[in-house]
Design a protein around this nucleic acid. Structure first.
Lengths: 208, 208
DNA sequence: ACAATAATCACTCAAATGAGTTAGTTATGC
DNA sequence: GCATAACTAACTCATTTGAGTGATTATTGT
């Protein structure tokens, strides 16, 4: 049985090309849409094996689209198909439940590979994207990008747990003002102006 | 120029088969080893494009092996090649800097695909593995554990970027005191006492 | 119609924090 | 032996923040 596919893509020309291309290559395109408003219904009724989802569409974005589809029919694999390669959108899509993430510059042959890969339960991603995903696990290596001393790292770790200066001083058994002194140096090295920024940076860049 | 490859695999038969197979298919196997003790040196001297790394080897494990190679020559892409598919080993490898993760049941054709994929900067993974990796991003379910209102979530998002109250007020175009009012409610709902704790909780539990 | 909730804004007060400055001690490396 | 850096500590001053209290408006569900 050929894999059933539904497309969401607001560019008419591209949508039609994709439909043609997929139908010519052994897939069954059950529907193709220029926006996501009916995504929930479509997922519930057609129960497609795969959805190709653009992000930038009029009305509801593809990110919300993934959510709608995954809520309506979690078995449908959703592959993002977009020009965006920024971390923000990427991780929003992954959190929303996307099963794959392809950039639009992907050649058709790789697109077919990707569809076959999700059908096997995999997670096809363009190289740059896969890179970003894996790099979220990397610890080490860049850790010393900011040249923090041992003691400074220790202070930053406590800070990142939400501890106040007073509590950090107690934990590390040093004076209140010493902690403040370390913090001042940390802020300089991280190029931030306050503890909240430092925590945000430390946790999002995993430098603790 | 054919891609240069180094193998680490303690099973002699498999190691020789792989060497033969890769050499027959346009790759240059520069070396193959039954254990990791010389991994650092090998990476520094040969600077291979790709390393295929087993996990379970006598002496130093492949997980430590990845670390050694990545420290010696970060440009070498390391693909894990193992029978293990448990979360523990998988994420240890990813944290150590692995660029891909293949199960040994992978057919040769896919192995070649994978090598080509890392050479393009990608992250080849067996379907089951890719699934596990993506599932770490899925949020949902617990998102509303703290019952934050829309506006409160918005404030918390800005806060988590390290913004001051004044800056948040400007961004959201509401009064300074309104932001403080929202924050007070957020702190209550999150059971924290200050913005730093809130950021720590928000970022570590991914509730933003 | 009424209760509950969300969102808005204001005021006070005490505590926490950031910025600036200075300085003593101990390692480390050249 | 001397420069450099890390770690330690103290002081001041202005700003930011948390906690308490109170209030208005709009929306929603019963």
């Amino acid at each position: 049985m050929p894999a059933s596919i539904v497309l969401f893509e607001d560019n008419d020309r591209l949508r039609e090309s994709l439909t043609y291309l997929l139908n010519m290559n052994g897939y069954t395109v059950m529907g193709s849409y220029g926006q996501c408003s009916e995504a929930s219904l479509i997922a519930r009724v057609y129960k497609p094996d795969v959805v190709l989802m653009d992000i930038d569409m009029p009305g509801i974005s593809g990110i919300a689209g993934v959510q709608m589809i995954k809520e309506s029919n979690p078995d449908t694999a959703v592959i993002m198909y977009t020009v965006f390669e920024d971390d923000e959108k990427l991780f929003q899509c992954l959190c929303a439940g996307a099963n794959g993430y392809l950039l639009k510059k992907t050649p058709p042959a790789k697109l077919f590979d990707a569809i076959n890969e999700v059908l096997e339960g995999g997670a096809p991603m363009s190289p740059i994207i896969a890179q970003k995903v894996l790099s979220t696990f990397r610890t080490k290596q860049e850790v010393n990008k900011y040249n923090l001393s041992l003691r400074e790292k220790e202070v930053l770790q406590w800070l990142s747990k939400g501890y106040s200066i007073k509590m950090i001083a107690t934990e590390m058994d040093i004076a209140f003002d010493t902690v403040r002194s370390h913090l001042k140096n940390i802020y300089q090295k991280l190029h931030v102006n306050c503890g909240k920024e430092a925590i945000a940076k430390a946790l999002s860049e995993r430098i603790v």
